[in-house]
Design a protein around this nucleic acid. Structure first.
Lengths: 144, 144
DNA sequence: CTTCAATTCTTGAATATTCAATATTTTCGA
DNA sequence: TCGAAAATATTGAATATTCAAGAATTGAAG
């Protein structure tokens, strides 16, 4: 009576990794039309509210750790997609803003991303999609 | 009447990335007790059926691309957790097997992983967990 | 008010991943 | 059967990420 071990494919951690990998791959494919990695789209999207966001805040929002974000922002500053401003209220902080070129690019990327969401809705269904989103949100909540 | 753009937090791709990151972080934390990265646990788990698995098969199963897997396997061979055998039926292939030390380690890792699943079940609930798993499986299916 | 701990961001070295090219073997059509 | 194309795994160089340390500023206790 050996206990049959749970196959890896039944672990939640594995299913999440697999689904994430697949959806991310599809999104990458679309965004590559503009030569932009997914993380840069996230950054532009967060900054597109026009407010200044500190590096720490941004790192949390776009799921990157600090040094990685710093280096990616360096590249984006070179490409004049975003720019840095020292926070006047707390000079340890740097506030990031989206630049004009960034806004233009972000619009294009948004429509590519919307394409993908629509594609998912078609093949996966409206109901399943919104239910999945709800469950994911609640999982994230319960993990804090 | 500017169209309010969907916030990043409402995209399925983002929710998946966020949930995956969080659950993976928790799992990493547990497995780090044995000093083993999540990918190595996956490899051991797949190989623990005792059969030989080719590198390509394994790469798919553990969600790594070929060169990354090759280098990780190199390390695991050094640690005598797994070993390589040339496939006698197709000499392009290499078959991977789990070694005794690997089996012992895998058992420990499994119980750490089960701990985590139980922790999730507690805070997130039985019903939600199985429903989420079902939806993820079906999303993965519909993406092929 | 001064000093020490905490916060924020960046840097550089160590590590890991990826892309493109290579080597080997098999498959399959002419 | 021969030779070209496909499949499989590895390698090495280029690139990216991470860890640990550092620099600057703020907060807060004595």
């Amino acid at each position: 009576m050996a206990k049959p071990n749970t196959p890896i494919t039944e672990h939640l951690a594995y299913l999440l990794a697999q689904a994430n990998r697949e959806i991310n791959r599809q999104l990458e494919l679309r965004l590559s039309k503009e030569g932009v990695p997914v993380e840069q789209w996230r950054i532009l999207k967060v900054l597109s509210d026009g407010d200044g966001h500190s590096m720490g805040e941004l790192a949390d929002a776009v799921l990157l750790n600090h040094p990685t974000l710093t280096k990616m922002i360096d590249r984006m500053v070179s490409d004049t997609l975003v720019y840095r401003v020292q926070d006047p209220h707390d000079r340890r902080k740097v506030l990031m803003f989206i630049a004009d070129r960034g806004k233009v690019l972000c619009k294009k990327l948004n429509s590519l991303a919307v394409d993908q969401e629509e594609h998912i809705l078609e093949s996966y269904g409206d109901k399943s999609t919104s239910e999945l989103k709800r469950l994911l949100e609640s999982l994230i909540d319960s993990s804090n």
